[in-house]
């Protein structure tokens, strides 16, 4: 198929080695995710877990999903999605934490 055509596709091809390195990093980070639960960071437990997950997510997005080499628009699209998700989170939680309740919720 299509072996006669050339020039139309200048897609960046990520080398095999990079994929394997990213995979190794992801496995390492998964181990870290589990390992940090052996320690207690108090209020920061959730932050640490969430931070590691976000690093992993960023690796998947940048390399496996090729965003690092993709055009700006696709990054904007995914960024917009995340931003408006934060909006939903922010205002919902804003309501919950600023409620003045007379009795316990349960």
């Amino acid at each position: 198929m299509g072996n006669t055509s050339h020039g139309a596709h200048e897609h960046h091809i990520i080398p095999l080695k990079t994929y394997l390195q990213v995979f190794a990093a992801l496995i390492f980070l998964t181990f870290i995710t589990v390992a940090v639960t052996w320690f207690d960071f108090g209020a920061f437990n959730a932050v640490v877990a969430f931070g590691i997950a976000s690093v992993k997510a960023a690796l998947v997005l940048a390399y496996f999903m090729h965003l690092k080499y993709d055009n700006m628009m696709n990054r904007v699209i995914i960024g917009t999605g995340v931003f408006f998700l934060l909006v939903l989170w922010f205002f919902s939680i804003l309501d919950i934490v600023t409620r003045v309740s007379e009795q316990s919720t349960l």
Partner: peptide, 15 residues
């Protein structure tokens, strides 16, 4: 702006 549908629904006054 969606919370303006909920002024009397038990949403916090601050929100």
């Amino acid at each position: 702006v969606w919370g303006h549908h909920m002024f009397v629904s038990g949403q916090s006054e601050f929100a």
